[in-house]
């Protein structure tokens, strides 16, 4: 497979890029949901991100992406008498195809070994491969219900449990869920919607110059993939350094009380259920601050990320013509101005 389209060469789409970078900095943010029409560069951006993620330490040929000093019980590679030396390898970005079977996703009996050696062995599935990385589901809104249930369960617990066909296996599966889809083709179950930390809407560029630029870059890429990737190497490297640096910073980013208060006020004004909204706001604000190289969050962070952190958590009001993002912005505007008035 040839080199993916470089992240830095994607024209516009700032909100989506920002959201993806933030989850790369803080995997606990809960993933991103990208909604938009076809052909707006959703998949391109996510596949490009894979090349920028900080690598993970694991042993070569380990199928469970074990952390070297805490291997999974069933991993034969890491539990061998003389396990190999851990190496750094790119963080996994696993594509979950729409037609995937439960066997493919969770893992199943290893057919090859069963047939040849008559051994009962477990062949890990996509969830194991996505451990410590990203799980990408294109057209997540068309995913079959039973797979959605399964994914929700694993994403919530971080553990994949397989109990069937005489197999009894459990292994950790902690991954960042990234979903994309077109809302016109069917909406997402609210339970799954809520599971995503951030949600962004994408549209293709609205002005002619940008659109022409997209076409030009795409053509240049198709003509000479490696050459094109080379020209963006330095810019991509800069993004990678930014992520690395932010990852180092994020544990030290503090959240002052007034920022915390602003977050709570916004959530109250919007009537967001539960604490998940506020927690996501906090985490996202810290990730944004870290990406900017700061060690303290500001109110501006909250204002900037509120739409993507909250828009999918609102109760739907069918008679409100404006999109949910506009509602969040309106509330943020009111609360932020009110708060400034108090100060």
């Amino acid at each position: 497979m040839s080199a993916p389209f470089p992240f830095a060469a994607i024209v516009g789409q700032e909100e989506m890029k920002q959201a993806l970078l933030m989850t790369a900095v803080d995997p606990l943010l809960g993933g991103v949901l990208v909604f938009g029409d076809r052909g707006t560069g959703k998949s391109t951006a996510i596949r490009a991100l894979a090349a920028l993620l900080p690598g993970i330490q694991t042993r070569p040929s380990c199928l469970y992406n074990c952390e070297p000093d805490r291997p999974v019980e069933i991993c034969t590679v890491c539990n061998a008498d003389t396990p190999g030396r851990p190496k750094k390898r790119p963080a996994p970005v696993v594509d979950l195809p729409l037609g995937a079977t439960e066997d493919r996703v969770c893992g199943a009996l290893d057919l090859e070994r069963a047939l040849i050696a008559g051994e009962k062995a477990f062949e890990p599935g996509l969830l194991a491969r996505a451990h410590r990385g990203f799980l990408y589901i294109d057209e997540v809104n068309l995913l079959e219900d039973h797979l959605v249930d399964l994914l929700l369960d694993v994403a919530a617990s971080g553990v994949n449990v397989v109990e069937r066909e005489g197999l009894s296996v459990r292994h950790p599966a902690r991954f960042v869920l990234i979903g994309s889809g077109n809302p016109e083709e069917g909406e997402l179950r609210p339970q799954l919607l809520d599971r995503f930390g951030l949600a962004v809407d994408v549209a293709s560029p609205g002005n002619l110059a940008d659109r022409v630029e997209v076409v030009r870059r795409r053509e240049a890429y198709e003509r000479d993939r490696d050459g094109f990737v080379d020209t963006y190497k330095r810019k991509d490297a800069a993004v990678r350094r930014k992520i690395d640096k932010a990852r180092g910073l994020i544990d030290d980013v503090s959240v002052p009380d007034d920022v915390l208060e602003l977050a709570s006020r916004i959530c109250m004004a919007l009537g967001v259920d539960g604490l998940r909204g506020e927690l996501t706001l906090m985490r996202a604000a810290r990730a944004r601050a870290a990406l900017a190289g700061r060690t303290e969050t500001q109110k501006a962070d909250i204002v900037a990320i509120a739409p993507m952190a909250l828009r999918h958590r609102l109760r739907r009001d069918p008679l409100d013509e404006a999109g949910s993002a506009a509602r969040v912005e309106r509330a943020v505007g009111e609360v932020a101005n009110g708060a400034a008035g108090h100060a």
Binding site: R38, R211, V212
Partner: peptide
Amino acid sequence: LADTVVKATAMLRGASMRAPVQAML
């Protein structure tokens, strides 16, 4: 010419950015 292709595909096939690339090819 490229501008015309991009504009016309935006009208005819909407948001998709695949359309202008395919039309250019």
